[in-house]
Computed example of a mutant assay.
Amino acid sequence: MRFEQWLDRYSRALERRILRLAPPPKPDHPLFSERIKARRKRWWNDGVDHPSKKLCPKIGGQDYVRSLGHAVPEVYAILPRITTLPHLDQLPERFVLKPLADNSVNNVFLMDRSTCLLQHRRLTREDIIAQVGPDYTQGFMIEEMLMHHDGRHHIANDIKFYMFGDKPAFVVMIERNSVKNKKLNRYWYMTQDWQRLPIRVSANQCQEQVMPPMPDCYPNMLGIARDIGRRLNTFVRLDMYATDRGPVFGEFTHFPNGGRNYTLKSDIWLGSLWKGEEGCDDPPSGREEPILTIAKAG
């Protein structure tokens, strides 16, 4: 365990103790976590229709973003079940295998010449099917592996925008190094202008304190996020990648973390940003406007 992680765990324990002794006053608005859980119930349990529901499957989201002229990963194949996975020697040397609808890293395989990069070991087709489970009913997609923006031999970092319409509340960058030992992964929480976020958001992730260099493609990426957010005009998390070919859209996440594991302070803050039923007061805008960008710092 890194010293920063030990210190982070100690700080979290101290914060929880303080909150038990002196809880903050109840806010005059619903918490962000309550909004997310209410949306899930409204969309899936109650069957309320909303245009953004069509963007929940990865393919639906990528098709929409592609139609706007933004880059998405190349899709090699769609599999109805994991048992229809081809032999690995029939696939490109590098590829990503992921479920069509799940928004976590569960059952995601980043394969480079038969080596799973996040498990740090070689896998066969049979190994992958056994890990997922042959009775798993969800479909899968096989898409290109996106590489790090600075040209190193490493997968591209995730950059996630928490959008209320065209306004990013904050941005998270994730450097994924392992699915087994998640302490090896690194998380940066920041403002849209690439400054460290002064509030702790995640209750269970160690937030890095030293900011990394801004990727050259980040200003364009922010512009794309704001363009898409303006068109949808709801709350949504836009998951993108900083790659060696520029910004690439990954997927939409409408229920980030299922509304769980937010600190109370961030839960109150994000809840205060939520307007109307779906996060913004106004209906989605179809106006054509130029994509917004920012000047690269430094």
Rank of each mutant, 00 (worst) to 15 (best):
L85N: 05
L88H: 09
F164S: 06
I174A: 13
E143L: 02
L123S: 00
L118I: 09
S104N: 14
I78A: 03
L85E: 01
Q131D: 15
R94F: 01
M145F: 01
I128L: 04
I155G: 08
R176P: 06
M145P: 01
P73Y: 11
L110Q: 02
H148K: 05
V72D: 03
L79H: 07
F161N: 03
D89W: 11
Q138D: 14
L117Q: 12
I174Y: 09
T137P: 12
A169R: 02
D150F: 01
R152V: 13
L118A: 08
E143V: 07
L79P: 08
V171Y: 00
P92F: 03
I129W: 00
Q131Y: 07
P92W: 01
P168G: 07
S104C: 12
L97G: 04
F164H: 08
A77F: 01
I129H: 01
R94D: 09
H87Y: 15
D112S: 11
M145K: 02
M163Q: 00
A130V: 04
G151P: 01
G139W: 12
Q138H: 11
S104K: 11
R176I: 11
Y136K: 11
H120Q: 11
L68R: 15
M145Y: 00
M173H: 06
M163C: 06
A77W: 02
T84Y: 06
H154W: 03
R122I: 09
L91I: 09
L123N: 02
A156T: 02
I129C: 03
H148P: 02
S114N: 13
F95A: 01
T137V: 10
I142N: 05
T115N: 12
N106Q: 12
T124W: 03
D166C: 12
M147C: 07
A101I: 11
L110R: 05
P92I: 10
A77K: 11
L118C: 07
M141C: 04
M163V: 11
P86M: 07
N106F: 06
P73A: 15
Y162V: 09
K160M: 09
L91G: 04
P80N: 09
K98A: 11
H87D: 13
H70K: 12
P80H: 06
L118F: 15
G133R: 03
L88K: 06
I128T: 07
I128Y: 02
S104L: 13
D158F: 04
D89I: 11
I159Q: 03
H148W: 01
R113G: 08
M111G: 00
H120K: 12
I128S: 02
L100R: 15
Q138L: 10
P92R: 03
